[in-house]
Amino acid sequence: MITTSTIAQILVNGLTSGAFYVLMALGFTLIFGILRLVNFAHGEFYMLGAFVVYHLTTQLGLDYFSAVALSALVIGLAGMMVEKTVFAPLRGRELSMLMSALGLQIAIQGVMAVVEGVDGFSIPSPVSGVYRSSWLAFPYERLLVVGLTIVVLAGFYLLIKHSTLGKSLRAVAQDGEAALMQGIPVNRVYAIAFGLGAALAAIAGGLIAPIFSLHVYMGQAALLKAFIVVILGGLGSIPGAVVGGLLLGVAESAFATLFGGLTAEMLGFLLIMGVLLWKPTGILARADG
């Protein structure tokens, strides 16, 4: 059953879900690295991002790419406001922040279930068609996700490494108090980090919605994946999120193709339980957010 064609197919399938996992995990790990917050509401920003794109494209007639960009902006700003109102007053109380994130998750889901209903929607894909050769089938819409993820990653890298904001983010991630001494506006950095993380989740939602479907409970499964990736790569580690995301994507794809869907689902949990016990700080073992 294992042929070169299967292996190629496994790899490209894994690449798509891997790209999606990376986007989800990036924001999650950024938020943890800066705020020390396990953001249980992360999946909800992903869901909100997808719904904003849905309304912008199907109801306001905006083109898909502008809709994704606008959605990231809107959700990013909303994220900053959420940080200011919900999490800023709890600074330093990790457990309270975690429970609040759970509350936020429940509340966002509750509101959206009332507003949007619980049925599924779909966004028409901006590209159609499938690349086909004798040994591979790869839909262009998936290629687009991979391409856009690379663009977003490159932008994110430039932002972190070569901008004043990036410098402040890195300083706060390393040591909040020291950053404060250096005159970095720490509170603003916290809000921006949360907003940036939420925007990344919204982009993931916007990119993935045309391929899958959207409904108000879609955040839960996505959150679980982000969790697994971030533990694999190390909490707070950005390179870890990229490596972990691709690794999980390809591993799941291989296991689902070779052994079936349930084994692949179990795999994720066994992987992180193993990693947590063997090297709790992640496989890259260096947290340099």
């Binding site: 894994g14 499964a221 799941e252 193709t257 079936g260 869907g261 349930l262």
Partner: peptide, 15 residues
Amino acid sequence: FYERGTQDFVPVLTR
């Protein structure tokens, strides 16, 4: 079988 919440069915469908 797939677990509820699965969104990408391509790997299982490939199988």
